[in-house]
Design a protein around this nucleic acid. Structure first.
Lengths: 237, 237
DNA sequence: CGCGCTCTTGACAAGGATCAACACTAGTGG
DNA sequence: CCACTAGTGTTGATCCTTGTCAAGAGCGCG
């Protein structure tokens, strides 16, 4: 079987099986062969620099090699919504119709593979596997966006944060203690979860005091995944 | 040019040009010809009956002929989120990966065209235009979901309702006075907008008193689209 | 060492939720 | 045809989660 195009669902299977269905894996393409490689160019972007703006014509789409990217919608009055955080292996920008509706910015220094959309489309029409891959990427994005809709529409601050921490723990590489380094600031988290920085801080403090996590700045260790999963956030008060 | 597959963006061009970009048109397929017609079967569903459940294997996808459909996510404790309302011409269920993450239910009596997904996929691999159509449908869904994320994450109750009313006015057929008949209940609206019924009622009352709309039960007339667009919802109090 | 970040915590305000009562409408059956 | 009932919508009173405003703590960097 030709593996030059493949979708890996989830990271290398690691721990926490109860969350397996949450592992909204990244679609990636094995670098081995494929006409795709010839189309891409490698780009590096410094921290906090914009990759494209909202409203830009959608000429390229991207796959992350290393680093973390956020998608951002800015309202005229300055309110900000972070759509999602993207990690190595993740694709973004593929789904744009004519123009990008969100901007993309580097959360950390980032290395990307950049592909011209029209070339990708042309190739996809000759190679059905690539077509399926692109479709799966967008379908996965849609599922993730809908999960966020449920979180923002119907979950409490505590539930949103617990869910977010679990997701990040699934997606990020762990050190030997099982801890991860959150790449984004409190502001980014707040704007992703539809909260304020202060609420994020306070809720993290509650979870820490409850013994569910330990956290100092960026360094996060989920001590009690079950408690986080169960978050009616027992400490209702 | 072969028109058997086409994406019509927006309804027959009707009024309110300032919102043209909002008219997140429905992707539809002209009934004239196309191998697609042979694949579809017509289905009717009574009001409030489920078309598929969340968790169901995704065997079919659908296009609405008449009526209104909602997609619904139900949490274990009964909290409910309505993903979107779908109207004639709209597709749904195409984006599912393995199983549907939301249920689909008839808001009103509904007539559907139902297509087996695997047959659609097979056909799409031979006919690039159908492939592009399916991709565009999912991309459009994704854009809509992201708009909802911004609304739920960063907009006030009043802004969400104003935006919703404008969208519905764009998408629904108007009578000679320019009014529309909202197909869904207050509960559905509330669960779509991440609010309670009471807040929906009260906010509608505020907008009515401000002269921006007139509304009795389901009958809605937007009297002052500019005011609705501008909603900082002046009546902050 | 001190400046400028981001993060944290506290006090208070407010938007929206909850609880409760009532109004309106459509449907049902006598 | 009317009365009754159940469901949906509306409005009021009150509560609570989260936002706002403010001050301080911790950390990185020149």
């Amino acid at each position: 079987m030709d593996m030059s195009y493949q979708i890996a669902v989830g990271r290398p299977p690691q721990s926490t099986p109860s969350l397996a269905t949450h592992a909204e894996g990244q679609a990636r393409i094995a670098s081995a062969g494929g006409a795709l490689d010839a189309l891409g160019t490698t780009v590096t972007v410094r921290k906090d620099v914009e990759i494209y703006s909202q409203g830009d014509a959608a000429r390229h789409c991207y796959q992350i090699v290393s680093g973390c990217v956020r998608t951002v919608k800015l309202m005229e009055d300055g309110r900000r919504q972070v759509g999602e955080f993207l990690l190595p292996g993740d694709w973004f920008g593929c789904e744009a119709l004519e123009e990008h509706d969100f901007a993309a910015e580097a959360v950390t220094p980032v290395v990307l593979r950049r592909f011209p959309r029209h070339a990708l489309e042309t190739l996809a029409e000759r190679d059905a596997r690539l077509g399926r891959l692109l479709f799966a990427i967008v379908a996965r994005e849609l599922r993730r966006a809908r999960g966020q809709v449920v979180a923002l529409g119907r979950k409490t601050a505590c539930e949103r944060i617990a869910e977010f921490l679990l997701q990040m723990t699934q997606r990020m590489p762990k050190d030997k203690t099982g801890a991860i380094a959150l790449p984004m600031s409190r502001t980014d988290m707040a704007d992703h979860l539809g909260l304020t920085i202060e609420t994020v801080c306070r809720t993290l403090a509650v979870l820490r005091r409850a013994g569910a996590i330990s956290l100092s700045r960026a360094n996060l260790l989920v001590r009690d995944p079950v408690a986080l999963l169960a978050v009616g956030c027992a400490t209702r008060h």
